[in-house]
Design a protein around this nucleic acid. Structure first.
Length: 627
DNA sequence: TTAGGGTTAG
């Protein structure tokens, strides 16, 4: 539709009010798609004095307030022109404020409604309770509850469901449950509201009990369950729930796939992710910005950049999140220059970057050792885009300078920034100190880190490594002792490989896998061939390991990533890329060994550790030995 | 005139 309305324009008219519409202006309003068109009708209404008609004014307010292309400002203008606005038009304005993500405004309007003694109905309470839920405004919600009881509206299904939702989300799960149990009519939304409450409160047991008791389940019920598992980090259970959903005959939708793709990404289960991608294509589900971002993220987290780029191009509407997913995916996979190219494309496409974009861009610079570019973008974010750097951005800069060995610059940044360094920043600095053997600064940063993150095993490991590097063995033992006394343990290393949609997991010295015999035979062969290639185990790395049990296993060369690679080698045909996902950082001994293995066996090996990706090919790694 | 579910950086 053009910006003007041609007289001959008469497509079929939608009429949700089911009232006969005789008024031309209102008919046209129903066809409006753009704000500009609504404004033209608005002008016609003013000209013909139709605006003083309460029904017409309320319809126009509704368009402005509720439609995607509306404007709350104009809704208020019409509202203000009505002499005595009734409950409907007040409700519409409250609803509009919610739609435009302004719950505070909705509550202020309700307050004005009370002051002016405007009658409230169950619609008013439905909307205003939603505002309270969004704001977690429990005190106001309780007052509303009293008001609702006073007005005899407590048994209205809509109002009750909203009250259950409010109490559950605010953590008052017992109050929510009381309302649930005393409801005369339990519809699917009541069940789902309660279900979401348990999921939100991470009460898995009650969640399951309720889910099992549900007489009917719909897509929302299943999606709530899947999202719960993703939130608590049980990614395998999330996928299992998705399978059950399909067995139950419930069709997955966009929301389902966003959660499922997140689980797949965390597991690094590329085959399952590809299946989802095919399903989306087959069922013509539109790749909007959210689903597109989830898909890009999945491919990137599985180390499959071709897939990520394809998903990026297939995403119909690209917003800042879509671009961020792509840029961060490239940066994490060691494609720094490509990440910066994408940032330039983003700027050209007219999408405005946000603070996350600059985190990704600066991250790309630090991972790629691009000091000049990093400095340029750090300035640009403030000067051109008006984004004040936060702790994450300063952290990237410290990482950037640290990696390049420019410790003066790193200290200068820390001294000048308006906040104290956080654990992420100190870890980056310690990493740099390790690479450049800056023991003095490493010790200072390490002690500060332990003070800041006393329950994080990494704090102790990093400081211990720095001391070991300086041959300060007394200090190494002291740090280890403190760590043990405080009951802090390094989590066991765990690596996984996906084969035909099944994720195979290996821990250090694993003897539980059904093909363990072949895996260990392969491991022996790998050891022999590594020796022939001149590989010598990094015994210092072995000594540095904090966990005594792991030291024993490490000396045998049975680190989980090596087991996973051995399994990958025996389970796939020669030349196939082996993808390994690891829960903690890859150790430097394994890193050296895998570089050689990629050459010896002529295989691409991709290892995703807790920090970044390592693409091993022809004896070298994409991280350029810096991680 | 009305309700419920979601991810994405490091």
């Amino acid at each position: 539709m053009s910006s003007t309305i041609p007289a001959s324009y008469s497509p079929p008219i939608r009429n949700p009010t089911k009232k006969p519409i005789q008024n031309t202006n209102l008919c046209l309003l129903l066809l409006c798609n753009h704000l500009q068109e609504a404004k033209q009708i608005h002008a016609l209404m003013i000209k013909s004095s139709q605006i003083s008609d309460a029904y017409s004014a309320s319809r126009l307010t509704e368009f402005y307030a509720v439609s995607d292309n509306g404007s709350l400002k104009y809704a208020e203008k019409v509202f203000n022109s009505v002499e005595e606005p009734g409950t409907f038009i007040w409700n519409t304005l409250i609803r509009g404020s919610l739609n435009k993500k302004k719950p505070h405004k909705a509550i202020l309007l309700y307050d004005r409604m009370l002051c002016q003694s405007i009658e409230q109905d169950h619609f008013t309470f439905t909307f205003i309770l939603k505002a309270c839920t969004q704001l977690l405004a429990l005190a106001i919600g309780r007052q509303l509850h009293a008001q609702i009881v006073k007005q005899g509206l407590e048994y209205s299904g809509f109002v009750r469901n909203k009250l259950i939702h409010l109490y559950a989300i605010c953590g008052l799960i017992i109050d929510a449950r009381k309302l649930f149990d005393t409801s005369t009519e339990l519809d699917i939304v009541t069940w789902n509201s309660m279900l979401e409450g348990y999921a939100d409160n991470k009460d898995g047991e009650s969640l399951h009990q309720l889910f099992d008791r549900m007489p009917v389940r719909d897509g929302v019920s299943w999606n709530t369950m899947i999202a719960y598992y993703v939130q608590v980090g049980d990614f395998k259970d999330a996928i299992e729930m998705f399978r059950q959903m399909q067995d139950d005959g419930e069709r997955p939708n966009r929301v389902t796939f966003i959660s499922v793709l997140s689980a797949v990404a965390q597991l690094g289960a590329l085959a399952q992710g590809r299946w989802v991608h095919t399903y989306i294509g087959k069922h013509r589900i539109e790749l909007d910005e959210n689903l597109g971002s989830a898909l890009i993220n999945m491919y990137a987290k599985c180390g499959c950049l071709d897939g990520a780029i394809q998903a990026f191009h297939e995403t119909s509407q690209k917003n800042v999140d879509t671009w961020n997913a792509m840029i961060s995916g490239l940066a994490a996979n060691g494609q720094s220059l490509k990440a910066l190219k994408f940032f330039l494309k983003m700027e050209l496409s007219g999408v405005w970057p946000n603070e996350i974009t600059f985190s990704c861009v600066l991250n790309a610079c630090s991972h790629g050792g691009l000091v000049e570019d990093g400095l340029r973008y750090f300035r640009k974010m403030k000067d051109v885009y008006g984004i004040e750097p936060d702790i994450a951005h300063y952290g990237c800069m410290v990482d950037l300078f640290g990696r390049a060995g420019l410790f003066d610059k790193a200290e200068e940044i820390i001294g000048k920034m308006p906040m104290k360094p956080d654990a992420v920043m100190l870890k980056a600095l310690l990493g740099a100190c390790r690479i450049h053997r800056n023991i003095e600064m490493g010790e200072r940063a390490g002690l500060q880190l332990i003070e800041l993150a006393p329950y994080d095993h990494a704090s102790y490991v990093l400081l211990s490594n720095i001391y070991a590097m300086g041959d300060k063995w007394d200090q190494v033992h002291k740090v280890r002792k403190t760590m043990w006394e405080r009951g802090i343990r390094k989590p066991p290393g765990c690596s996984s490989v996906e084969l035909d949609g099944v994720v195979h997991e290996f821990v250090v010295g694993d003897i539980t896998h059904s093909r363990k015999k072949q895996v260990y035979e392969m491991l022996d062969e790998m050891g022999e061939r590594l020796k022939l290639a001149g590989y010598e185990p990094d015994t210092k790395q072995v000594l540095l390991d904090i966990d005594e049990e792991e030291v024993r296993q490490t000396s045998l060369g049975h680190h989980s990533e090596k087991l996973a690679i051995a399994f990958g080698f025996i389970s796939t045909s020669p030349g196939t890329t082996v993808r390994v996902m690891k829960n903690i950082r890859v150790c430097s001994d394994c890193h050296s060994a895998i570089k050689l293995l990629s050459n010896i066996y002529n295989r691409d090996i991709i290892v995703r550790d807790s920090n970044r990706f390592h693409h091993f090919r022809n004896g070298s790694c994409s991280c350029m030995d810096y991680w």
